[in-house]
Design a binder for these strands. Structure first.
Length: 736
DNA sequence: CCATCCACGTTTTTT
DNA sequence: ACGTGGATGG
């Protein structure tokens, strides 16, 4: 009896066929992750392949982490030698080593969407592009599309030379790339594009990686775009042991350039491809699977396959059509409470899925009122929050003086009296002399031209230089401490004395913990390393399985996950499928939405709740929507529509009123489980004289506790760090 | 140089 | 409904 005996025939075939190109069409819940992990184990243990020679690409860092862990559990040793990560992380790793061959410096920064927008804004200003006609977002999305297809600015210009409407876009693309290069920065798309360029221009580097990665596996293959495909085909070209796993029915990232043709045409590119279909579903009940099959059946563009299961029929799909979105949210809360309290399940068994991030608001509100622990994934990413970006901009400035964007962001934060006029002067000097922004303010010539704020700029430059001299002597977390202390960033927030400011302080504390965490985990912690890790995390990566909360997220975020009990909310025409796709000329857009619906349904293992509302506020406007056309594709006999029974139950659930729903409660924070948020702890577990432990400062003795407003202020004399004053609610002190 | 106010558009999804 | 960005006045 070997570990492979637990796999079905098809799965075994997929595991044992290690040589040559292999396309695994794996339906939802057909155990593809299991196949991949076992395949890696098989390569190592049975075929004697060196773990060093294996690469696996996943869609999220979380998936990568899980795969590593699972492989680690079946393989005795060496699993840390395997490269398991996302396309983006993989490429960063390669570029950190070799990007100097493309004329960038190896400590390049990675720009997120906001950064891209700032650069584009600047580009438009320089080129006199009227952003009323050409929106930054729009230009960027055209550029991104080009990059997804591996089209350089030059090629883009050539292709569109006769298209007058593209003239400005062509200029913008060119200038945007130049700007990024000047800043020694890459955007998300560049990470892949530049790696492919690197391979194409440097056969020696390509060959060294080809020889290293003799076995390559790609998960969620249906969501790869053209450059990504180019990247893996280059890598796999020599040894041709490329295994891709995907499901055309779950392709939901076309808007991001994912090329469904990659899956439909894989066999053409790799002519001797062996195809395996995994059609047995191990996840869902018969009813849920039937519903999913019925819905997806309506798509025309798909490879034929039929998912089946030997699971029992299971409960019918719970369906309710509520009057208002508030009632819908309350219904979900009621059902979740019942499920957990009466039926003995846990909160983490439940997930609420929706089409748009905005829908999380109502759910959040009801859950908060009813003390249901929950966690919102997505929306505003932790690393996109203002205070976090500010601190990171400091770190980036210290790390890479060429990142003009970062420098400009923080040169006047907190207020130093360096305004737009001064910044313009410096920028002019920088442009004229070909210096970076930061280098300019270190030039006497430039400083002398500034005028009134000269001394302030000098002081700022001095401050950064001081941090630079320290960067190799102290850890990242200490560096952050230093920055927020010297700039007075946190004390300024504290002085504001508002809930929001307190929240921001908490976020900064959180960032410090992440830095500490990074220092402990990384083999060789560096500032660049930390910034990189931070740039590539998705919200979903922070989900942890140990805590007990309901997860709220978009269907997109839910890809690859499964839950015993799924609540699919807002199934209304105009919302899901979205208004955009209903009115689009291209009928294939509806098909993508339908695939999304298919993904949503197939996340459910045991129970599926679907709901919609007649009335809903969208963008401050009350809308009246019909029930989703996708719902009508589910046969009625699979549904439990409740009829009148439900009305008899007097619900004890507090639901938000129309007015309270309009009021924002808290800014949504992706990283916290709100139910347990305590502003002021009734009883601290320590008192004067007690020994306590702090995450960063280590152990110390409590010297003083004073009651201050919403919180206790605790003074601790730390053995190593000295005396510190801090608020009890976020100091996370533990009595020892 | 900075704070405040108003107008606008934004939202479909994200590494 | 919300945040952003531009204009205005101190």
């Amino acid at each position: 009896m070997s570990i492979y005996d637990t796999l079905n025939d098809m799965q075994q075939q997929a595991v044992f066929r290690t040589e040559g190109p292999l396309l695994i069409l794996a339906g939802a819940g057909s155990g593809k992750t299991r196949v991949l992990t076992h395949r890696i184990a098989y390569l190592i243990e049975e075929k004697g392949i060196n773990p060093w020679n294996i690469m696996a690409i996943t869609f999220t860092n979380k998936a990568a982490g899980e795969m590593k862990e699972r492989v680690n559990n079946i393989v005795g040793f060496g699993s840390d030698q395997i490269w398991v990560s996302t396309f983006h992380s993989t490429c960063v790793r390669i570029l950190r080593r070799y990007i100097d061959r493309l004329g960038y410096s190896n400590n390049f920064t990675i720009y997120d969407t906001d950064d891209q927008k700032s650069v584009m804004k600047d580009v438009c200003k320089r080129l006199n592009i009227d952003t009323k006609i050409y929106k930054e977002r729009n230009i960027l999305s055209q550029i991104s599309k080009a990059k997804d297809e591996f089209i350089s600015p030059e090629q883009f210009a050539m292709i569109n030379q006769n298209d007058f409407s593209k003239k400005r876009i062509i200029e913008a693309y060119k200038s945007y790339q130049e700007q990024l290069k000047n800043n020694n920065a890459l955007d998300f798309d560049d990470l892949i594009v530049k790696t492919v360029e690197l391979f194409q221009n440097n056969p020696d580097i390509l060959e060294s990686y080809q020889d290293r990665f003799k076995y390559i596996m790609v998960d969620e293959y249906q969501d790869t775009n053209t450059v990504q495909f180019k990247f893996i085909s280059l890598l796999a070209k020599k040894h041709r042991n490329l295994c891709v796993v995907g499901d055309d029915d779950q392709s939901i990232y076309k808007f991001r350039g994912a090329n469904i043709k990659n899956i439909l045409n894989f066999e053409e590119v790799f002519s001797d491809t062996f195809v395996i279909k995994l059609e047995q579903n191990y996840r869902s009940t018969q009813n849920i699977l039937n519903a999913a099959n019925e819905v997806i059946k309506h798509n025309t563009e798909r490879k034929d396959k039929k998912l089946w299961t030997d699971h029992k029929e299971g409960d019918k799909i719970f369906f309710r059509y509520l009057d208002t979105a508030q009632e819908e949210a309350a219904m979900a809360a009621t059902e979740i409470k019942k499920y957990v309290e009466k039926e003995g399940h846990t909160y983490r068994d439940c997930a609420c899925l929706y089409r748009t991030n905005a829908q999380s608001r109502l759910l959040e509100e009801v859950f908060m009122k009813n003390n249901i622990p929950y966690k919102i994934v997505g929306g505003i990413n932790f690393y996109q929050r203002k205070e976090i970006k500010d601190v990171l901009a400091y770190l980036k400035t210290v790390d890479n003086g060429m990142d003009d964007l970062a420098v400009k962001r923080i040169i006047n934060i907190p207020k130093r009296g360096i305004g737009a006029a001064t910044i313009d002067k410096i920028q002019t000097y920088a442009d004229y002399n070909g210096y970076s922004f930061y280098d300019s303010i270190r030039q006497e010539e430039c400083l002398n031209a500034i005028g009134r704020s000269e001394s302030k700029v000098r002081k700022f430059a001095g401050f950064i230089q001081m941090l630079r001299t320290k960067r190799n002597l102290i850890s990242v977390s200490e560096l952050i401490e230093e920055i927020i202390e010297d700039t007075g960033y946190v004390s300024e927030l504290r002085a504001e004395n508002t809930d929001e400011a307190e929240e921001r302080i908490l976020n900064i504390e959180e960032l410090i913990s992440k830095a500490v965490d990074y220092q402990e985990k990384a083999e060789e912690p560096t500032l660049s390393g930390f910034l990189e890790e931070v740039a590539l995390v998705a919200d979903i990566d922070s989900l942890d399985a140990d805590s007990d909360y309901v997860v709220l997220m978009t269907i997109h975020s839910a890809k690859g996950l499964e839950f015993p009990n799924v609540f699919l909310c807002g199934m209304e025409d105009g919302l899901f499928p979205s208004y955009m796709t209903i009115t689009a000329d291209d009928p294939l857009e509806i098909e993508e939405e339908r695939r999304l619906c298919y993904v949503a349904i197939t996340r459910a293992m045991e129970q599926l709740h679907i709901s919609c509302a007649k009335q809903r506020m969208i963008r401050g406007e009350t809308q009246y929507n019909k029930m989703s056309r996708f719902l009508k594709e589910i046969p009625l006999e699979l549904l439990d529509t409740g009829k009148q029974i439900e009305k008899m139950e007097k619900s004890k659930i507090v639901k938000p009123t129309q007015t309270s729903a309009a009021k924002p409660i808290f800014k949504s924070k992706a990283f916290e489980t709100k139910q347990f948020k305590v502003n002021k702890e009734a009883n601290l577990e320590y008192t004067n004289g007690d020994r306590v432990k702090h995450i960063k400062f280590g152990e110390g003795t409590v010297v003083d506790i004073t009651e201050g407003g919403r919180d206790y202020e605790v003074t601790v004399n730390f053995d190593k760090a000295g005396v510190k004053k801090m608020f009890a609610s976020f100091a996370k002190l533990k009595k020892v």
